[in-house]
Structure formats: C-alpha cells, structure tokens
Amino acid sequence: MQVTMTVNGDEVAREIEPRLLLVHFIREELGLTGTHWGCDTSNCGTCVVWMDDEPVKSCTVLAAMAHGHRIRTVEDLERAGGLDPVQQGFMDEHGLQCGFCTPGMMMTARWLLDRDPDPDEATIREAISGQICRCTGYENIVRAVRWAAEHPATSEVHA
C-alpha cells in the first residue's frame, strides 16, 4: 500500500507492507537511524517519536496508521546548526553513556518542557517512566532535563 506522511517537515511517500512498523519505516525506508529500535514490546521507549505533536512508541504503531500524519524524530531537534537545549543538557550533564535510550528520552523531554517549562524532579521522572536507561541510572538524565528547563533561551527557534 502507498503511504504519505510528513517527517520532520518533509513529505515522504513509500510503497509498504501494511504490517510494517513505524520504527522500521523511519529507520529503513527513510534512513533516519537516530530513532532507535529496542525492546519491540513498547516497554523501553528508545523508539519514541512524535506523531502529531505527541510522543508515541513507534514500535507499536503501524506505518500505515501514520499515513496523513506528521512525524517528528530526534533528527529534527537540532535547528539551524544549533542544539536544542535538551540536547545541550544531555551533553553538559552527562545524560548518556552508551546513548541507546537517548533519542527517545530527548523526544519525551522536549514534549514535557513544551507543556511544562519548569518541571520538578518528580514530574520529570514520571514523564520518562516508560523509558529505560541501563547506564546512567536516570540521575543524570533528570539533571539534563532540568538543565534544559533552566536554559530555555536557546530554544526560541522552536515552533
């Protein structure tokens, strides 16, 4: 079947099998490998992308279901060569070691900060509670999101 969707602002069209999962469409059809493919069971959250402005686990959405919708992946966080504050926060606060969970963590963090620009630690932990990191133990991830909350100025390019 033919699907058409907007990915990071660009319209893309592909011929796919209806059973193709969105995460594989993004990685294999579009070559956007920033989105990671982890547990396959909607538990780990490394595959989180935005669908129509909300984070979703792309291992549990069919590409066919995204037909006609807007998808935003981690590649779209950076704007005009500048890092999103969330990305900068992950760098400055050492929010990653292996980096496998990072794209999903950052997409959820960006969504949280857009809705709640000054979240406390409990709110951040709740927001990422469906995402698993096996390296840092979450402390630095929470600090990274707090860093982004405290340095919002550079995110003005965000629509």
């Binding site: 909607s42 959250g45 989180v48 909300e54 984070p55 979703v56 686990k57 549990t60 959405v61 959820t108 709740e126 927001a127 509670s129 469906g130 995402q131």
Partner: peptide
C-alpha cells in the same frame, strides 16, 4: 495505567 507515552496512544 502503562506509562505516559503509551497513554498518549
């Protein structure tokens, strides 16, 4: 119920 990202969907 589940987690915040799953609850979006």
């Amino acid at each position: 119920i589940a987690d915040p990202v799953v609850r979006n969907r």
